[in-house]
Write a protein that binds this DNA or RNA. Sequence first.
DNA 1: TATGAATGAGGGTTCATTCAT
DNA 2: CATGAATGAACCCTCATTCAT
Lengths: 222, 222, 222, 222
Amino acid sequence: MTTTSAKSGRSRTRGAGEDAPRRRGRGAPALASERRAHLVRLAAELFAEKGFQATTVRNIADEAGILSGSLYHHFDSKESIVDEILSGFFTEIMAAYQAVIDENENPRDTIAGLVRVAFGTLEPHRAAITVMQNDWNYLRGMDRFAYLTKSEDEVEKMWVTTLQAGQAEGLFRPDLDPKLTYRMIRDTVWVAVRWFRPGGRLNAQGLAEHYLKVMFDGINLH
Amino acid sequence: MTTTSAKSGRSRTRGAGEDAPRRRGRGAPALASERRAHLVRLAAELFAEKGFQATTVRNIADEAGILSGSLYHHFDSKESIVDEILSGFFTEIMAAYQAVIDENENPRDTIAGLVRVAFGTLEPHRAAITVMQNDWNYLRGMDRFAYLTKSEDEVEKMWVTTLQAGQAEGLFRPDLDPKLTYRMIRDTVWVAVRWFRPGGRLNAQGLAEHYLKVMFDGINLH
Amino acid sequence: MTTTSAKSGRSRTRGAGEDAPRRRGRGAPALASERRAHLVRLAAELFAEKGFQATTVRNIADEAGILSGSLYHHFDSKESIVDEILSGFFTEIMAAYQAVIDENENPRDTIAGLVRVAFGTLEPHRAAITVMQNDWNYLRGMDRFAYLTKSEDEVEKMWVTTLQAGQAEGLFRPDLDPKLTYRMIRDTVWVAVRWFRPGGRLNAQGLAEHYLKVMFDGINLH
Amino acid sequence: MTTTSAKSGRSRTRGAGEDAPRRRGRGAPALASERRAHLVRLAAELFAEKGFQATTVRNIADEAGILSGSLYHHFDSKESIVDEILSGFFTEIMAAYQAVIDENENPRDTIAGLVRVAFGTLEPHRAAITVMQNDWNYLRGMDRFAYLTKSEDEVEKMWVTTLQAGQAEGLFRPDLDPKLTYRMIRDTVWVAVRWFRPGGRLNAQGLAEHYLKVMFDGINLH
DNA sequence: TATGAATGAGGGTTCATTCAT
DNA sequence: CATGAATGAACCCTCATTCAT
């Protein structure tokens, strides 16, 4: 996961005599991190639009109105940018999931809550989810992103446990494979990022309710 | 779409009066295309594993035990290889879809058939579907792959028409958005390619049946 | 024609609200373009010596003591280098031609002036003229160099008009084909670049005078 | 210079016991060389149109309706093809020049004859002359084409000697540099190949007469 | 913080040529 | 004679990254 220091992963251990980077007198230190956050947002947009590999650091720098080399004052590498994007997303959604689980007793309500949370991230985290969808296969090959797999496993546990509880309480059909069912729900939600556009016919919550209907009761008319 | 000639798009300089290279009587022309097909298969495997962009022509050539330049004896470009993979997939699945539609009267049976066809392609076309899932965003930016979008639209029409017919006949819930529902079904199926491995707990048809249950009747126990 | 910006044709992505990279107050911007001009000169020498196609970007980079990829920090492409060479030459000679036409009343003086200008470019633009002579046939096939043909047409008009005026005033033989005559004069001058070496028996202006004698009065002794 | 054997430059010294290539029973041996000559003509056309370097052996083979590898049954290399084209041209023109010199006493008549011969080759040897004009700079760098320089020197001697004789006899102006004058005449003629098209306003002989007028008496109206 | 110049590794592609069939 | 597959070297160009200024 990314540290919050301006340039992660590079700072060798600072020796005793060396002085720490001094805060520049003129600006508030918040400004620097605002600039940084702005760059991350620009990059995220490009990664989502063209894919991580197809986006060059020059693309990002152009968008920011600086030269590509200048990006390296803010980030270690192209990877560290996408890392920031993805880790931010994961941190947030896992907290939201946990909150839903903590707040609900009924597994059916919990599942509904999780689905609503998931759809709810579609808009604010569109770029991150798109990157996950399109570039996950590439990124997971890199050691630095091993933590993503770990986070995914934790999430899977949350869902599967809830589904199993629902089956035990007689709420969900007993002939479902919980793992399989989780994956289908997860994929169905995330993959919507490919065609979902804010401002379309349905907003993210509309989508969620539509999906909940189908998921709970199927498409058949009973 | 790809032509079937060994190297499409090249050597269009042959003058009117001159004769084209004549087919020799002795050899089987099938052999040449077998080699070609073999190379396509190797490339597909690599594209699926590492992504189209991350796969170099040298990777493909290495896998085939030849030099990278030698690939260009068989293909115009790296793009033309992936073109062949994708167009082959689309041609096949669209024919299979059409057959299902022609054979069935009942929309519910038709939808079930379409779902089974879709899951049925998961194994034989694993690579093509994976490429579609991961690299579609990149490939669709290229003029040469515009036909893919067109094919997708045709497929959508097939599904949506069937879903609407089912609603009209009182088989499916009337409060479903057919387009949305189609997309969810489609994505749920294709995205399974990310984790589906032949020889796992469930085979592709097992998956199909599991999904049909959920899709038709939901996860609730009624 | 070539723009004067460091890298033409690239990075047009800058959004509306964002500011372009600001010029630093301290450094002389001329230095950057000096480096660039130096590289252009090196390339011109090589193009003249070995031909455009036979000169590799590595040749140019080697000559400059950098890596081939580094050239692309200064130029978009190999073509853009030769473009710069040729467009510079055309811009200059057309201005010089126009000045001669503006300054002279008598067509005979004008023609003499044009010839002297033409021979006068032999030394400072030796490389550009050589490239025009040897690689024109290849370069004109490219859209990007269409402007060269246009410039050539303009030049032709200058000469032909002057020759025709000379005929009308009874200065030149009326049985000459002005277009043909122009071409012969032009080619005779430019082609001299193949064997003309500064520092030889005759300098460029000596050549011009020799040629003017032959051109005006022929080789016969009257 | 090129030998007349089918594949020049490659045949190592044939040992005593080895048998010479046997004439195939079926066809006349002339057919093979006709085919060969046809290929040379096709290649010449392409070399003239696109330049030697820009013409690929595949271009030539395409034009002939065979595969590029098959060309190597007729020629050693791409170079040997252009060699054949150029050496044929030189052999012919030098013989024609010599005949003119042998037939004429008067230097003025001789020069006129040489000019007419030169223009006369414009049509039948258009391709060869074009290659000489455009690719000479490239080809002369190769050992194999050293003989071309030698032939050029011989030709220069013919012209210069004649011009000097004309000066000695008081026919030509004494203030001319014979070498320079020769070069100008030569270049003016050959360079015409760039725009001369058979079937245009003037044929090659018309061009010759036009040029002779200018050359002997200048463009001035006396 | 930014610039501007450069690196170094690699990318897709071309092409003359070879050779077994 | 021709094919078809392959070689091997080179080509133009890209791009993440570094670093002195």
